[in-house]
Design a protein around this nucleic acid. Structure first.
Lengths: 120, 120
DNA sequence: ACACGATACTGTGTCAGACACACTATTGTC
DNA sequence: GACAATAGTGTGTCTGACACAGTATCGTGT
């Protein structure tokens, strides 16, 4: 039996970085927080609103997203779009992701300790 | 230009959950902390010692690893091995990982906002 | 006419995990 | 005998996830 709380914790740890990638990728075409929430939910990457909003502000503060209040309609929306830095970071994160996938796969298919001893 | 500190932060966020998977997978054949450190380093998944040791204790506390002091040699080593729960959790995390990869790929190849509007 | 849920956010607090730093103790090497 | 490598523990600090509470607007039903 698996402790569901423990599982949930580790699953969330796994998701952590991916939400940033998803946000940067999605906001290459501008959008706002609440809408992004629905997009991510629909694509199977469910994020808590209380997690996403602070995340967006942080990405803005880091210069990875550009933000601007859209007040043309009565309900104000904070529009975000991925900046050049954001796009650059996304690329780096994607290659990091691929590297991680490779490392994990490597660990599963070969005996890592054996490989260590057989170093040149 | 990318802020290297920001990049390092997000890369670490990405790595977070994967170290748990790597540990559970590697320790299906028993091993100890310091050795695991070298194995992970060698397979491209570098982890800080100050991160790995507490992680191993936490996984032990959660019943995902079984631990036992090996005092047959003069230098004592804490031997860890993946428990049944650990193996079960690893499987769940691997399918979660694959799901995340699918979601991310989905976001990149299709226009997610368009897909949202075209729901049945 | 107005209650209620959905939309769209901000702000404050709590808790867990990553890492820095400091420490103990042994083994091998120069 | 100094010093790096091995193999760990313990005690901070800081950041991010999420809970909870609050603000304000819009749409729908009754």
């Amino acid at each position: 039996m698996i402790d569901e709380d423990v599982l949930a914790g580790h699953q969330q740890e796994l998701r952590r970085g991916t939400v940033v990638m998803a946000a940067l990728a999605t906001l290459e075409t501008p959008g706002y927080g609440y809408g992004l929430l629905a997009v991510l939910e629909h694509s199977g990457l469910s994020v808590d609103a209380n997690t996403l909003y602070p995340l967006l502000r942080r990405l803005e503060r880091q210069g990875l997203l550009e933000a601007e209040w859209d007040t043309t309609e009565s309900r104000p929306r904070k529009m975000y779009k991925t900046s050049d830095s954001g796009r650059a970071l996304l690329k780096r994160l994607e290659s990091e992701w691929n590297a991680l996938a490779g490392s994990l796969n490597n660990l599963r298919t070969t005996d890592p300790r054996k490989a260590l001893k057989e170093l040149p």
